[in-house]
Design a protein around this nucleic acid. Structure first.
Lengths: 104, 104
DNA sequence: ATTAAATGATACCAAAAGGTATTATGTCAA
DNA sequence: TTGACATAATACCTTTTGGTATCATTTAAT
């Protein structure tokens, strides 16, 4: 099954891709600029960017011969929404753990 | 690199595992009970549960010959914390999109 | 004490992921 | 127009992942 949520979760499951997202949160970058920051080839970075785009975590904007990669909030919201269901659990559980620790 | 955050993200990247988490949010279950809900073998489910445990998304509690699988908030919090950095972006961006739509 | 039940462990397989190298394509600049 | 530059596309390789089948181990029940 390949839903939008699935593509977003899959894209976030790789540390290099998460690092790229942090970089793009500071400024828009081309593939070449991103690749310069990693010890892997441009081709490998391109694959990561494709997955990030499929997960709606970035959008890509061709300008001339360059392609500007931009952070896109949709994918993060996908994941955020799915996870929000569990907020009640870790909220309750961790706060009661906190209470437990405070009382010792 | 295999950090705790990485293990949590990796565990969430599979749809079967996410479904298991939803099931465990309703009640604690043994491996056998979980496996009965999926068209895959117990061995496959066991592997999923191992990854969920590594990602700190569940905890496992042996009782007699059974193993009770319980939802564990730590892993979800790991992911939540990592993602909270991006809240500013999708918060701003989506709210300005909302504003844009409202003004049309 | 035996047997059945619940799980663990291992070896194996196909497909997906993450990577490389190489070749092709489009675009800017002299 | 002819290079040089930025990216695309393809073929290929290795490791991880998701799955199976099989056998071993522990525990409950008769």
């Amino acid at each position: 099954m390949r839903t939008r949520v699935q593509d977003s979760f899959r894209a976030l499951a790789d540390p290099t891709r998460r690092e790229i997202l942090v970089m793009l949160s500071k400024r828009e970058m081309t593939i070449g600029e991103i690749a310069a920051e990693f010890p892997i080839t441009r081709a490998a970075v391109k694959k990561h960017l494709t997955m990030l785009e499929e997960g709606q975590l970035i959008s890509v904007h061709p300008i001339g011969r360059e392609r500007i990669n931009r952070l896109e909030p949709t994918g993060i919201k996908n994941v955020h929404d799915w996870m929000s269901y569990f907020d009640q659990f870790w909220d309750d559980k961790l706060s009661s753990l906190q209470t437990l620790l405070n009382n010792q």
